[in-house]
């Protein structure tokens, strides 16, 4: 046999090490960005937290008044995100069950709907805001809790649907067949078997959507408005935490800025809690899935 001979080289070992170093450096940078952001919010937000902050509405106007807290924004955000999440469930759950239980494999409708949700996921929230605004003009609504709920539910239902779809897709076909074999209709199978089997995953999807909804500002700025008061009706404007940050950060008055920091702290805390809980649910869900 002819041995043609290969040169021995060290260069590639150096290249390997350089790139590995760069990779570790990048990972480190990205993770420290996260820590830096959370750190900044805690350092600024924690000193601004006190009992008045979370039990009072702003006194003397949210933009100028030095007294009071952000109860209006906390309650407003919970109402708004809660309402939008509820509406989104009403749309997402039937749609996802339909896609996974009623349709045949390789159906065009399924492909098109999933594709459409993926595209909607990428649509910027400001566009949902603008769209919500056109709906409100059409219906003759003014900036209100209801307007905000409509805009945000449009924003979050594709996210919720896709997240639900991911878990429900994993349910083995055999489980559905077993249910049919017992004489159950598709509707019974969908709501009694599928939803039960996928419950933790469905809850995770709901939480993810809620988290996205409560943190979004651009979609509610036209549609929900902002106010010093806690909304007592769907047709009144509602304050939200993200806008409380945005508006109150922009003033020259330090006391008002404190309210922005406190809002940021509370919003971040909500997002953290939502993400931890949904992670726990996901873990629990994957434990039960038969692979």
């Amino acid at each position: 046999m002819v041995r043609l001979g290969l040169p021995h080289m060290n260069k590639r070992r150096i290249e390997e090490n350089i790139f590995k170093g760069l990779m570790i450096f990048s990972t480190f940078i990205i993770l420290s960005c996260l820590l830096l952001i959370l750190g900044t919010i805690i350092i600024k937000g924690l000193p601004a937290m006190n009992l008045a902050m979370i039990t009072q509405t702003p006194k003397g106007g949210y933009y100028l008044g030095k007294e009071g807290g952000i109860l209006n924004a906390i309650i407003g955000s919970l109402y708004l995100a809660g309402g939008a999440t509820f509406l989104a469930i009403l749309i997402s759950l039937p749609v996802v069950l339909y896609l996974n239980v009623y349709t045949k494999k390789g159906s065009r409708l399924v492909f098109f709907t999933r594709f459409s949700f993926d595209v909607l996921w990428g649509v910027p929230s400001i566009v949902y805001g603008a769209f919500g605004f056109t709906i409100m003009l059409f219906l003759g609504l003014r900036a209100s809790l209801l307007g905000g709920i409509i805009a945000v539910s449009f924003l979050i239902f594709p996210i919720m649907s896709r997240a639900m779809d991911e878990v429900i897709r994993m349910i083995p076909e055999e489980l559905l067949d077993a249910s049919y074999a017992l004489g159950a209709t598709r509707l019974e199978t969908a709501f009694k078997i599928v939803t039960r089997q996928a419950l933790p995953g469905i809850l995770t999807a709901v939480l993810i959507a809620f988290g996205r909804g409560i943190g979004d500002a651009a979609s509610v700025i036209f549609t929900a408005g902002f106010t010093d008061h806690i909304p007592y009706s769907l047709f009144r404007p509602a304050a939200t935490l993200p806008l409380a940050i945005f508006f109150q950060l922009g003033t020259p008055i330090p006391e008002v800025q404190e309210r922005a920091y406190a809002s940021a702290f509370i919003l971040t805390a909500i997002i953290l809690i939502v993400s931890v809980v949904s992670r726990i649910l996901t873990k629990r869900f994957t434990k039960h899935v038969v692979k």
Binding site: I30, K44, I208, G211, R212, D216, I245, I271
Partner: peptide, 23 residues
């Protein structure tokens, strides 16, 4: 790291905004 990166994705954009203004 996976949950941390997910968290980065979940932080609302106003929070990024306030951090940008402050830092």
């Amino acid at each position: 790291t996976a949950p941390l990166i997910d968290l980065l994705a979940g932080i609302p954009s106003v929070i990024y905004g306030i951090w940008g203004v402050l830092v």
